[in-house]
């Protein structure tokens, strides 16, 4: 059909996001101490990293129960980014992984550098590589790298 017209449009989506007191405490410890903090639910026994104000399961308040977890952990899932667009953190191909840190029960998402992206696998032992200049965001950890010698034995989160 030749006479059906299209209205072209474009919209901007500006936003900011308030990390809140809980998210900010995590970011400050990461930036200033190179420490990774979580919170423990004393009822469910779960350790949440990233930290949450309340337990989604039992609704308990968690912010009195901060813990420090290890900067080593295990890949629980990953994807390989192979296309390029302007706002990516690095040049593709690269690996985005879900990493469950030792002492935590929930994973965080971060960059994984393991040489050839094809080497990434679930269960891979990894460790955090902190950035030299750190700001209060997740890129205070530059990326995670493979930690072939690492084991998950005997890690219990330190109470703060």
């Amino acid at each position: 059909m030749n006479d059906a017209f299209v209205i072209e449009g474009k919209m901007a989506l500006p936003y900011q996001y308030f990390a809140g007191a809980v998210g900010s405490k995590f970011l400050v410890a990461l930036r200033d101490e190179k420490q990774i903090l979580g919170v423990r639910c004393s009822r469910c026994g779960m350790v949440f990293v990233p930290p949450r104000q309340s337990c989604e399961r039992c609704f308990s308040a968690l912010t009195e129960h901060w813990v420090r977890v290890e900067s080593t952990g295990e890949v629980t899932g990953f994807t390989v980014v192979r296309y390029a667009e302007p706002y990516q953190p690095k040049k593709p191909p690269y690996v985005l992984a879900l990493i469950k840190l030792d002492g935590a029960d929930t994973p965080i998402a971060h960059l994984l550098e393991c040489g050839d992206p094809g080497r990434a696998r679930i269960g891979m032992r990894v460790r955090a590589v902190f950035a030299g200049e750190r700001r209060a965001n997740l890129l205070a950890i530059a990326h995670f790298e493979e930690d072939p010698a690492g084991t998950q034995e005997g890690h219990s989160p330190a109470r703060l």
Partner: peptide, 16 residues
């Protein structure tokens, strides 16, 4: 301004 809470945390206050 509610810089002290993120969205689910703010909602939590009302729910509790």
């Amino acid at each position: 301004h509610r810089e002290d809470v993120n969205q689910p945390e703010m909602i939590h206050e009302a729910v509790i």
